[in-house]
Design a protein around this nucleic acid. Structure first.
Lengths: 345, 345
DNA sequence: CTGTTAGCGCATTCAC
DNA sequence: GTGAATGCGCTAACAG
């Protein structure tokens, strides 16, 4: 009850506030909850003391006592990517008002790092977890299954979802862009992507490219793989060099991302390759650079923030269901994507 | 119908593991700590059980009992910004191995939102807090002072630092670029920045511009403020329009960020304004787009990741000092910046 | 090396 | 509307 502490914030507890206010600690606890039954006068008096002496309640103790962490874990391949950053923002906007704190992890496009992060984050007892993509290590899948919390996989449509899904078919998106290029008269279509399969969404876009090329009866597929994700602008430029050396006849290039597409475009300008006359370029993601560059980049737009928002909404309703002992049946939300016709095709 | 009781990792406690292993809970606790004194055989036996039944220790309980949260809070103006994302990565690389989890907050360039976030994050009892910039609300300063934890302000050199600082003078950087433009023969130099003072680092760059223009005896300053931060590429293009209308004689433009500089560059290409012959363009931040665009953008480079790494190192040594009851004296690390001469000047 | 005791600061549950 | 008792899962401190 008495402690030999100095005036640090850490030394302040509800008990001290209670003593100052002449009430019990329980009453202070109620004063700090918005929906507790307490007389307005008592609450006002307590809140006044709290703000005057700068008491900050201890969330660690709260979550320990209430067995609710108030955390949601979210894993993204890269924080430094406009698309995923938008998805994170979408989640934050939905979780913040609900009093949930996002615990962010950056997998750096590595499944083993994802596994490590899942293991570390699960120790924080998140109430739900949001993942990017539908491919995970067996160990990760097992941990997630044992965790017994709502899971949302995003940015993809996994064949065997762990639980909920908010995504779209990257394969279909890749194919759609090839069809668009074909409609615009292109017949020698190439693809530029990463050199590894770490970016599973990128690999699916490439698979969609390959399928569409087959379906359309185009003579051959021209794939340049270059650089390890996250793909950079400069890598696009270098990949263009390889592409033109190997398949000089190429008249359209589909890139795994707007970033590499932009790199291709800039390299074309340096070399004097006319875009789109001699070479059409298409990207993916509708990054700001795609809307702003000259000529403007044809690309595929996805509602990144919407993915985050929908994922958060599913988490919130799953958590709501859990309160009454129910389990929300796995839900899959298919987000639309759209070919955005601009000037590079 | 699966009910809450199964599949719950939370149902497992150290006590259960202890019973299975025929030891006390304390011994299990020691087996899970790397530096505890415990016989190798006992540890091996316990770890085997732990991994077989998939027990995940409860970090919430651990931090509650040990009075160490394992959290470091970090606030950035925007996650969707390569520069700050790099700083975050620098911190993560240093904190991860030290067993510290980063709690990220996005202030969206708003001081009041920063205040809210500080208040929310302080509830999690972070062991230290890393801020961006040196301007904070009075309430925020008070909370931080009361928190009694190491504080690092980054990306700036505050006049009245709260504690530690890892930054550079944005004012000097702005001035340095004006001097560079002057050396290259430009005399009608303009500045494009945000319309608000929310981006305090941007405001300082503008102040540096104004000072340099005065020092060099240039006739007038030409400042276009446009858009609210985070500044976008497109805003750069729109600002160029305003600039050329108001001061058609302008022969060089310094932009608050590479992003707006890129927007200016692209707009020049659309209008047929020759860069750098008719108009020189300089940015700030050395974003990837600056290195990759055509012509390549002259800019100011800062070691963003290094800022994060140094901030983390200071936090780690402050925490180390705290163990022995000491307080690390406030330290200010001045990071270098560099004018990167490229093709737009 | 291992066990025992005693909480950490709060919320839950029940009294009143 | 308010208070008292109780314990969440773990670790610090000490004992053996």
């Amino acid at each position: 009850m008495k402690r030999a502490e100095e005036g640090q914030a850490g030394a302040l507890t509800m008990q001290k506030i209670a003593e100052l206010a002449g009430v019990s600690a329980m009453t202070v606890s109620r004063a700090l909850k918005s929906d507790a039954s307490i007389s307005p006068e008592t609450r006002a008096r307590i809140l006044d003391i709290v703000s005057r002496i700068g008491y900050v309640p201890d969330a660690t103790a709260r979550m320990f006592a209430s067995r609710r962490s108030g955390f949601v874990a979210a894993l993204v391949p890269s924080l430094n990517n406009s698309n995923f950053a938008d998805t994170v923002r979408g989640m934050e906007e939905a979780f913040g008002p609900a009093g949930l704190q996002l615990l962010l992890g950056d997998t750096e496009y590595s499944l083993s790092r994802e596994e490590d992060l899942i293991s570390a984050l699960l120790q924080r007892r998140p109430e739900a977890i949001v993942l990017t993509g539908g491919v995970h290590t067996p160990a990760a899948r097992q941990m997630l299954a044992k965790a017994g919390i709502p899971i949302v996989e995003t940015w993809d449509l996994p064949k065997a979802p762990l639980d909920h899904v908010v995504g779209f078919s990257n394969e279909a998106a890749g194919a759609a862009m090839v069809h668009y290029l074909y409609e615009r008269g292109r017949r020698n279509i190439g693809f530029i992507g990463g050199a590894t399969n770490l970016d599973t969404r990128g690999s699916e876009r490439r698979a969609g490219y390959a399928r569409a090329v087959r379906e359309l009866g185009l003579s051959r597929s021209r794939v340049v793989t270059f650089g390890k994700p996250p793909v950079t602008m400069s890598q696009g430029g270098e990949a263009l060099d390889l592409m033109l050396k190997q398949w000089p006849e190429v008249d359209a290039i589909l890139c795994v991302s707007d970033l590499s597409a932009f790199g291709v475009l800039m390299e074309c300008q340096r070399r004097g390759v006319a875009v789109p006359q001699r070479l059409a370029i298409a990207g993916f993601g509708d990054f700001e650079v795609a809307r702003c560059c000259h000529p403007r980049l044809t690309t595929i737009a996805v509602d990144c923030q919407g993915i985050g928002r929908r994922a958060a909404e599913i988490v919130l309703s799953a958590l709501e269901a859990k309160k009454s002992g129910e389990v929300l049946p796995p839900e899959t939300v298919v987000m639309p994507f759209e070919v955005v016709a601009r000037e590079t095709v």
